[in-house]
Amino acid sequence: MLNLPNHLEEEILSMIPFSSMRAVRLTCKKWNTLFKSRSFTTMHIGKQEAEAERESGESRMVVMTDHNVCLTSVVTVNEHEKPSTKPLGKLTCLDNEHVKISQVFHCDGLLLCVLKDDITRFVVWNPYLGQTRWIEARYFHRMNKYKYAIGYEDRKSCRSYKILRFRDDSDYYVHYPYNKNHLSLYDSYDFESNLWRTHYLRDPLTLAFCDRGVSLKGNTYWCATNGLGEISHTVCFDFASESFGGIKDLPFSVPFDDKERVALSCVRDEKLSVLVQSMQTSVIDIWITDNIEEEKVLWSKFLRVDLGPLNGLRISNGCFFIDEEKKVVMVINKDRKERLDTLKIFGKDGFSELELGEPSDKKCWPVMCSYVPSLVQVKLPEGGTRNRQRD
């Protein structure tokens, strides 16, 4: 093995199933270092995922229902067979089995989990490796709501992962649209330095962010309002510069109120997709970007769905998933009448529905996001678990 070229050694080791990777890492320092390289990670994960999809026709995603996070696959083989869900395991790598999660965000195989009953800390989690890292909040106020995001800065040697947190005033903006929502400061946390930093905006952003942000290529995007109280563009947070910017026009402009639902999602960490649902009609429209990194983003219509008798469907906090190859859209929904969390699947071959179960907490809205396994390490920082702070 010592005489093999590096690229051939990587090729051979990438074929080993993940269940045997621990033994590979413990064999020698060279293989342990190889395990952490981005090229090997991309090759190994890509092969494992391609094999899984080819054999089963499944789409993997993270689903949160009743404050529990689970890894689930939805199998859509062909138009003649009804789709089905296959649980891949409840993500209970946490120390306390009774921990309840209120929000979950995905980036590069890492999950940022915000707790329901503990606002003093949150946890970052790699379910593929079974590693967790608890992070203490810099400060908190029980009356305030916060928005969160996780992303990374690409560096020559590695990716530097970071967390964003800022106060969420969107509910106030909806009820009092003439009172401007000023985002003037926000906090970021750096995994490597184990530091919180506070950032002040010289020119506060006068806008409202809609629901959840989605991570794409290390940055996070939100749908946001213009000065007229309409949802008309996206705003990006760049984790490299730790700043807001990158405003891109949406293919529509709708009022920011309870009559319209707008949501973002990402497609294989390559494209953005956006969904708009009018609560007054039975139509859902979905678009996909071509290349979000260009100055002018072009949106193409992916699917239009007439819900018909399902016009009471209310998409939960912008949770939907797209399988571009199969032309399938999945949306997660809380059916208040039946008291069930359900997964609605729309495609060119029609509509189907899967029950996810009856939650014990009726106020817990289900959440769904795409998931790609990752070999990113999230071990505790050197010198202990306590987070240092810095202005």
Rank of each mutant, 00 (worst) to 15 (best):
E353L: 10
V114R: 10
L115Q: 07
W222M: 02
L272Q: 01
R22T: 12
K47G: 15
G350W: 06
P309F: 00
M15W: 15
G357K: 02
V99I: 06
E295P: 04
H7S: 01
S215Y: 05
V297S: 10
E58V: 03
P204F: 01
N317V: 03
I12Q: 10
G308E: 05
K362P: 01
G384P: 10
V283H: 07
S84H: 00
S265M: 11
P5G: 06
G227A: 13
R167P: 00
C113T: 07
P5V: 00
V378Q: 13
V77T: 04
D258R: 04
H175S: 09
D290F: 06
L216W: 04
N126S: 11
H44W: 11
C158I: 05
T385V: 11
Y148G: 01
D203W: 03
K180S: 12
D290N: 04
K334Q: 06
L380T: 12
K29R: 13
T225V: 09
D349I: 05
F252P: 01
K348G: 08
K334E: 07
I135P: 07
L298N: 12
C266N: 14
L264N: 03
D335F: 12
T206A: 10
S253T: 09
K82H: 02
K348F: 02
L88E: 15
I101Y: 10
K326Q: 15
D335H: 11
L112I: 10
D258H: 00
L2C: 07
S73T: 03
K180L: 08
N68L: 13
F346C: 09
K82I: 04
D306I: 09
R336K: 07
G347A: 05
V124S: 12
L26C: 15
K379I: 08
Y189M: 04
F346G: 11
K337C: 15
V376G: 06
I322C: 01
S102A: 12
S184I: 04
C70N: 15
S232C: 15
A149N: 00
V104N: 11
Q280V: 02
L26R: 12
G246R: 03
L8Q: 06
K100N: 10
V276F: 04
F40K: 11
S278W: 00
C236S: 09
K116D: 12
D361P: 11
D249N: 11
S232R: 05
G46W: 13
E153Q: 14
N68G: 03
L340S: 13
D341V: 15
F35I: 09
N311V: 05
T27G: 07
Q48E: 08
K348W: 00
Y200N: 10
G312L: 07
Q103V: 09
F209V: 01
R60P: 00
